[in-house]
């Protein structure tokens, strides 16, 4: 089982790399180089803050775009072109295919993020001329971004298992935006009453809580991140991604591929 999942995952990663997905790193490198030079000239004492904010936000946005736009085609393209038959005529279970695709895209995003992190630290070193112990929290910020990618990738796979690529992209992007404001949604739920309170609370808990996973501003200000939050966020992201992936598998298992 695991070898088939690994093979599909590795192939998904290889396909993404050969389709020049990682070329976004060039754009990111240019952005970070430009930002580092510019920030050094116009900012006084907040160079580090600007570089970390800009760098991690760029990592998040670039990754989200890749997760959504690659993710929507992972299953739907294979169904549309019927390339799936060549794979599913092997002793490959449908769930292995979905899980393999998930890990393949997640791996691509992780490699992409790690390369970008190197760029962020290079820019940080350029503007500060030295590293501080608080810079380690940037890695935690990056880790949380990767957790967000896992959730978005699983949601994109879920949507693409039953809808068109365009709708999948719209659904996934909408959930990303709503999830980024989930704390506000919870605040709104606490202020309302009756059925709207019930609906707002349900929505607040159903959408992925991306705001809890966003510590970019905090780590840019050199604030520490509690170990408890790291554990909670890890458990939450893994649980959410597993649920979404299970949904994708359940739908895909029942889908008529004729």
């Amino acid at each position: 089982m695991s070898s088939r999942v690994f093979n599909i995952a590795f192939n998904t990663f290889r396909e993404a790399v050969r389709d020049r997905v990682l070329y976004n790193l060039v754009a990111f490198a240019l952005l970070m180089t430009g930002a580092a030079i510019l920030v050094g000239q116009i900012s006084i004492d907040i160079e580090r803050l600007v570089v970390v904010n800009l760098g991690l936000t760029a990592v998040s946005l670039f990754g989200m775009v890749i997760a959504i736009f690659i993710g929507i085609g992972l299953v739907s393209k294979e169904i549309e072109k019927r390339t799936l038959y060549t794979v599913l005529s092997r002793p490959v279970r449908r769930w292995e295919f979905i899980v393999g695709k998930f890990f393949g895209l997640a791996g691509t995003l992780i490699v992409n993020s790690v390369c970008m992190a190197v760029g962020v630290f290079a820019a940080l070193f350029y503007v500060s001329r030295h590293f501080q112990s608080a810079d380690g929290w940037v890695l935690v910020g990056l880790y949380f971004i990767i957790l967000q990618f896992l959730i978005v990738t699983s949601l994109t796979l879920l949507f693409s298992s039953f809808s068109s690529p365009l709708l999948s992209a719209v659904f996934a992007f909408s959930l990303f935006v709503i999830g980024s404001f989930s704390e506000d949604l919870r605040g709104f739920a606490s202020m309302t009453r009756g059925i709207s309170k019930w609906l707002a609370t349900a929505a607040a808990y159903l959408v992925p809580n991306f705001s809890a996973l966003n510590v970019i501003s905090s780590v840019a200000h050199q604030n520490s991140v509690s170990g408890q939050l790291i554990v909670y966020n890890t458990a939450y992201a893994l649980f959410y991604a597993t649920m979404a992936l299970s949904g994708a598998v359940l739908i895909f298992e029942r889908r008529n591929l004729k």
Partner: peptide
Amino acid sequence: LALRPLNL
């Protein structure tokens, strides 16, 4: 169409 990925 049947062989993916074609960049292998």
